[in-house]
Amino acid sequence: MSAAQSIYQRRYTVEEYFTLEEQTGIRHEFFQGEVFPLDGPEGMAGGTKQHNRLIQNCTFGLRAGIGERGCEIYTENVRLALAAGEHYNYPDVVVSCDPQDDDPRTVHSPVVIMEVLSRSTEARDRGWKFEQCQLIPSLQQYVLVSQYRVLVDSFVRTDHGTWELTSLRKLTDVLLLPTLQSQLPLAEIYRGINIPPLRLAD
């Protein structure tokens, strides 16, 4: 077993997890004492240029939409506390509007989370990760963006605590962001993205 592999064979306290990330410079998911690398040879392969461009498009579009509303937008290198002390991860895009959410490394009160899907992460983003995000009291919207076809799935928390799904499939569609009092056209999300024609097999 290599030294790198042995790092992930033990359980960590939250403080040890934070120290591990500072020492290695590698992003990890932390869940109840276990750590899972998100970068490097022990983690997932690097994202594609298309994946990165979609994150940038979402970020720029959100920033233009919210203006001076006092919300902050962070991308994939800022940690999210799904459950403080128990579960931390790194969303592609996260928005916080809480002025007291001032931790320099971690977002604690997200209102919107956006994930750009890849073939290796889609099932998890739609399943277990979404289930975990639903437990965040402040979260109002969870958005999934496909990089292989024009498809944006938006889940919005209702007044009854359930989640309402809206699927957008055309470049002329507009993603509504009610909590931010804003909207984001799909044409902006997919600007500069090469989407192949949809085939029956897809």
Rank of each mutant, 00 (worst) to 15 (best):
Q50N: 11
N77W: 02
L200G: 12
L144I: 06
Q181W: 10
I136W: 00
P41W: 00
R11V: 14
D173C: 08
Y12D: 03
V145R: 05
P197C: 06
Q100L: 15
N52V: 04
L117H: 06
A81L: 04
R199S: 14
D103L: 13
R63G: 14
L135V: 01
V112S: 05
I7E: 08
Q23E: 13
Y148R: 10
S146P: 11
E76Y: 06
F30W: 01
R79W: 00
M1W: 13
V78Q: 01
I73N: 08
E164C: 13
H160R: 11
N89E: 02
T172W: 12
M44F: 03
N89S: 09
E29L: 00
I66W: 04
P196W: 04
P37I: 02
R157D: 03
Y8F: 15
L54Q: 08
H160W: 07
V94Q: 00
Y90R: 03
A84M: 08
K170I: 15
R199M: 14
T162F: 12
V94W: 00
A81S: 09
E29R: 01
G85N: 06
Y8R: 06
R191G: 10
Q134T: 05
I73E: 07
H108N: 10
Q141P: 14
T179G: 12
I66H: 05
V152S: 05
P185D: 06
